[in-house]
Computed example of a mutant assay.
Amino acid sequence: MDRFEAMSLLVAVSDAGSFSAASRALKVPLATLSRKVGELETLLGARVLMRTTRRLALTDAGLAYVAAARRILEQVEEAEREVAGEFTSPKGQLVITAPVMFGRRHVLPLVAEFLADFPHIDVRLLLADRNLHLAEDHVDMAVRIGALPDSALVATRIGTMRLVTCASPALLAGHGAPARPEALGAWPCVAFDMPSAPPGWRFREPETGAILDIPVRPRLSVTTTEAALDAALRGIGVVRLLQYQVAEAVARRELKLLLEEFEPEPAPVHLIHAARGQMPLKMRRFLDLAAPRLRTTLARLAETGLP
């Protein structure tokens, strides 16, 4: 048995939460994955995984072993990168993820400049409106909009982002502008049809800071921010998006911001990466380029509302 391979597979199963999810992520047959983890348990003389009704869970022995295995795997990976020269010269592949629209508008131009400056680095830019898992999806660095959970990830704060409500002038001409969030109950709205989306829209009383959860009537539900923006531009309904997603339309007066004084606190924006000791130069160089530039972009957007 290849003990190092078995350790890697066990960590992958623990991260994925099931043998089937790890099998898909690793492209390893499910039977092979189960057999090799079983062989490792036999070698250890202890059960490291137990099944629950919802997912796999680690035993106490498994928790200790996986933590140790993760440290060993990270040390080996770091040693391999050092031997390959990633710590002495910027080279290799850099994998970056960002929200779709933010990535296309603000990260892609930085990547183009970065590639021109560093000819020995290749970049995979993964644009997705769901948060990819850095370890499972083999991501080096990510742009995150929103509060971060406690984790071992390293976060560099680059600004904040408003969550804004807006509508087209044509829609407002037929309805007038709502004076308070509660009025939105009578308005047609454009909403996201996603499993994690809350049932209503959250606002905040400007004087007291009290939270207002307002139910809305989705005249149209969509699954992408681009579709929500297009629907709002066509006057289908009121939409709620992040400020950068509507900034150009607002600047062209194709959309008008509503209920600005009732907006919730702006969401923090970070660049995050895994904490793995010394950072490879390819990541260090991209962070040095991207952090100040994105910080300037977000500050300008916060001050002027212009993209």
Rank of each mutant, 00 (worst) to 15 (best):
residue 181 P to I: 10
residue 232 A to W: 02
residue 143 V to P: 03
residue 171 L to D: 02
residue 142 A to W: 03
residue 206 P to H: 04
residue 219 R to C: 02
residue 164 V to W: 04
residue 256 K to F: 05
residue 248 E to K: 09
residue 159 G to H: 04
residue 154 V to F: 04
residue 214 I to Q: 14
residue 228 A to N: 01
residue 195 P to S: 09
residue 169 P to M: 11
residue 198 P to G: 03
residue 131 N to F: 06
residue 220 L to E: 13
residue 163 L to Q: 01
residue 169 P to Y: 12
residue 204 R to P: 00
residue 217 R to S: 11
residue 175 H to S: 11
residue 167 A to M: 12
residue 148 L to S: 13
residue 160 T to Y: 11
residue 247 A to K: 13
residue 258 L to I: 15
residue 137 D to C: 08
residue 160 T to W: 07
residue 240 R to F: 00
residue 164 V to Y: 02
residue 238 V to Q: 03
residue 140 D to I: 01
residue 171 L to K: 14
residue 225 T to C: 10
residue 179 A to W: 10
residue 252 R to G: 13
residue 147 A to N: 00
residue 254 E to G: 13
residue 222 V to I: 09
residue 169 P to Q: 10
residue 234 R to C: 05
residue 159 G to V: 04
residue 254 E to P: 06
residue 249 A to L: 11
residue 239 V to L: 06
residue 221 S to Y: 00
residue 225 T to Q: 14
residue 209 G to N: 14
residue 205 E to A: 13
residue 141 M to G: 02
residue 215 P to S: 05
residue 237 G to F: 03
residue 207 E to W: 07
residue 178 P to R: 05
residue 234 R to K: 13
residue 152 A to H: 15
residue 255 L to R: 07
residue 247 A to W: 06
residue 206 P to E: 09
residue 162 R to K: 15
residue 136 E to C: 05
residue 134 L to H: 06
residue 191 A to E: 06
residue 156 T to V: 09
residue 247 A to Y: 03
residue 214 I to D: 02
residue 200 G to Y: 09
residue 203 F to T: 07
residue 163 L to P: 00
residue 220 L to Q: 07
residue 135 A to G: 03
residue 175 H to I: 02
residue 134 L to W: 05
residue 166 C to L: 12
residue 171 L to I: 05
residue 149 P to S: 11
residue 235 G to Y: 01
residue 234 R to T: 03
residue 153 L to G: 06
residue 149 P to R: 08
residue 182 E to H: 15
residue 201 W to H: 08
residue 194 M to H: 13
residue 204 R to C: 00
residue 201 W to Y: 05
residue 146 G to L: 10
residue 223 T to E: 08
residue 237 G to E: 02
residue 161 M to L: 15
residue 221 S to A: 12
residue 253 R to Q: 11
residue 251 A to H: 15
residue 207 E to K: 12
residue 140 D to W: 05
residue 170 A to C: 03
residue 176 G to W: 12
residue 161 M to S: 14
residue 141 M to R: 01
residue 172 L to N: 09
residue 190 V to T: 09
residue 202 R to T: 15
residue 210 A to E: 15
residue 207 E to Y: 00
residue 158 I to W: 04
residue 229 L to E: 10
residue 199 P to W: 05
residue 231 A to L: 08
residue 236 I to M: 07
residue 131 N to C: 03
residue 132 L to F: 12
residue 182 E to T: 12
residue 216 V to F: 02
residue 202 R to N: 03
residue 194 M to R: 14
residue 222 V to H: 02
residue 177 A to C: 00
residue 220 L to R: 14
residue 237 G to D: 02
residue 142 A to L: 08
residue 167 A to V: 12
residue 211 I to R: 12
residue 159 G to W: 02
residue 130 R to P: 00
residue 190 V to C: 07
residue 172 L to M: 13
residue 166 C to P: 00
residue 191 A to W: 15
residue 129 D to I: 02
residue 185 G to W: 06
residue 238 V to M: 05
residue 217 R to L: 11
residue 132 L to P: 09
residue 176 G to F: 14
residue 241 L to K: 11
residue 171 L to R: 11
residue 179 A to I: 11
residue 140 D to S: 09
residue 184 L to T: 15
residue 179 A to C: 13
residue 250 V to E: 05
residue 200 G to K: 08
residue 160 T to L: 05
residue 137 D to G: 05
residue 237 G to S: 10
residue 189 C to M: 15
residue 180 R to A: 11
residue 227 A to N: 12
residue 206 P to T: 06
residue 232 A to S: 14
residue 212 L to F: 07
residue 220 L to G: 10
residue 174 G to T: 10
residue 129 D to T: 08
residue 248 E to T: 08
residue 234 R to F: 04
residue 132 L to W: 15
